[in-house]
Amino acid sequence: MTPQTLLIAFPKGRLGDELVPKLAGTPLALDAAALKSRVLRIPTATPGVAALLLKGADLPRYVAAGVASLGIVGSDTLDEMDMDLLELADLGFGACRLSLCAQAGVTLDQLRAKPHLRLATKFPKATEAWLAREDLTAELVPLSSSAELAPLLGLADAIVDLVQTGGTLKAHGLVETAVLGRSSARLVAARGAYLSEPGRLQPLAAALVAALKGGD
């Protein structure tokens, strides 16, 4: 990699699955052969611009440190990590709710009434903020995946997790009891790269917005 290669950090997983087809046919389309391989640095249709495929939770660090100049990440991750980076646009796709979910039949009032409420989540910051707004206290059980299992197996009374279609919740007999916030994909930029090389970064940022927001 030369210092002139510009890196864009794309998320793996749910957001990445939505993102890759939207980029097809644009100057930032990802090389199909490289995508099928296990490499994590993928050439794009624009020479000198490559994509890094990263886990959402790691992506903001790469951008904040200036390793990647631009990136796409869910606002839920941004809110949890609070990194120093620029958030140039709400791209609209990947929309989901951050919700409090419990087993069917358990109401929000019942959860409120518990003397010792336990909530499992991988979003502790957003959960703490909601608890403060609601004047509630709870024990937070940190989890990094498969939070839906926690209420079923008695690890927690409820979970705070992202809900898109509700299919996973339904499959586990869970229902949403409160919506804490909403999340969608955001275009982020490294502060230094964006402010020191605007002529290089702004056209690419505009191209990403056109490719990703235009298809709403």
Partner: peptide, 8 residues
């Protein structure tokens, strides 16, 4: 700033 610098 300098082009490519990460900080002012």
């Amino acid at each position: 700033w300098a082009p490519g610098a990460q900080q002012e």
